[in-house]
Amino acid sequence: MALEEKQQHPGFYAILTMLIIMAVGPILMMLINSFKLDVDIISGTSGLLFMPTIQNYETALCDILPYEPEHLDFCALKFGGAFINSLIIALVSTLLTLVIGCMAAYALVRFRFMGRDTASATTLMVRMVPPAVLLVPVFGLWNNEFCIDKASWLGSLIRDNFGGRGDVCLAGTHSGIILIYVAMNLPFVIWILQSFIVQVPRQLEEAARMDGAGPFQVFFKVVLPLIKPGLAAAAIFTFRIAWNEYLLASALSDRDTKTVPILIVNNMSEFNVEWGVIMATGMLLAIPPIIFTLFASRQIITGMTAGAVKG
């Protein structure tokens, strides 16, 4: 190995460096700009010479800061609330998708039963459905069909306690967005986890069964611990989609359940873009996926290759 390394042409390292700059440069630029005042961004003469400030982050998070930032008279951007919404939605849907997807993958791999091939094929086919295709039906269903009549006892209970008019519908609630995210991610998670469950030695499961473990005990105590890398990969991919998604969330959320991507898009379409603040919000949205990538890149790459190659 040492020999081969010596043989590399210096030009090779130059290309490598350039590639790294190309891949990471734009993200670094956003990070740097998020610490600049708009004046510094617009003058732009000094790329790295500026006074770093956290003012942009203060503006973005003004609604959850314990103190009032001096430069603001009015907290217009309710970014903190959206951040919390995003967290709730992403975490809950990731957890649900993992548990449900894992069980389904286990059933598809380990049991021969009627309808197995149909289930398998359907999982594959729905993977190609773009979110945009789901937009119209989900909007219609979540607003008009998946509702509890306000005259029924449960509906009137919710209306009395939480206020609002009309029937109690899924649209505009966290659970409405979570439901569609879980459904959207399930095919992918099932697909990835299947390739990991196949590798679990059957003898282990049979031994546990001999010792008197029921199907759920076998699943939770024997199979799950063995496919942890697969679970990590699946979790990251699910979280990434739920955390980053814009279109369906924008159709389903109301004033109180807006997620971060929606806020960013809304602020981008305004005429006068405040670049510093926007970059700060973008950075806040990008930080969780970046952290995952830095700490679990091996799992991500395993998951990606498992999803594509072993299918």
């Binding site: 389904a104 380990r110 789901l134 269903l141 095919p187």
Partner: peptide, 27 residues
């Protein structure tokens, strides 16, 4: 047993993917 393991996924996907797709074609 397999149906028990599969049930939650089937219910969610039928409710929030297949039904909407059918609803879209109908609409």
């Amino acid at each position: 047993t397999p149906y028990v393991f599969l049930a939650p996924a089937v219910v969610i996907m039928a409710l929030a993917l297949l039904y909407p797709l059918g609803y879209m074609i109908f609409g």
